[in-house]
Amino acid sequence: MIYDPNPVAFWLLAAMVAGCALAVVRARKLFHAGLALVGTLFAVAGLYGLLQAWFLAAVQVLVYAGAIAIMLLFAIMLTHNMMNPDLKSLTTQPWTAAALCLMLLAILLGGTLSSTWQTAPDTTLSPTWTPKCGFQVAEAIPSVQALGFRLLDPFTLPFEMVSVLILVSLIGALVVARRNPALPEAPEGREEKAP
């Protein structure tokens, strides 16, 4: 049968995703935008859970909410005038951008909803997770093991390339962010000002 998720859970999570994402782009305090981003990430992790991609949901929380979002929050704290929570994050041309984005949304929705997608029943899925201890879960859940085999069998090269990419970005970030003693720094006190 075609997979059929719980509608109540879907609509709750969808509302959370949309609301938090709106807060990310419109929140006046940047820190609140960061918190809203974490909310979005959690809701998306919930949607992954709804789609039974449990491993991905955990990775989403661990890597996205736990590392990337926290790092962005750190950056907000390091770059803002921290003791002044009322410092506003400015926006430009909201109406033009809104019109553009609505047009983009119309194109995307029209494209996706008008095309017919090949959906298939669950039978072709990889071997299911058979618990050793009697705890039963719904059938046809792609197991972590299946994902691991998939990652190492056809996707070996991308897997290794991603590790190289992360190493490169690590070194690059260190080089870019390191204080260069030869260059003079801008003087303190020139804080962000509202024009």
């Binding site: 820190f31 955990a58 909410a65 929050l73 997770w129 859940i141 197991s143």
Partner: peptide
Amino acid sequence: DLDIGLLYVVAITTLTILAILTAGWASN
């Protein structure tokens, strides 16, 4: 007894960082 139990535990722990950062920032 989740399929991804151990990963789940570690992932949920990261929520604590967020809470503590928020507490520190919001206290002004």
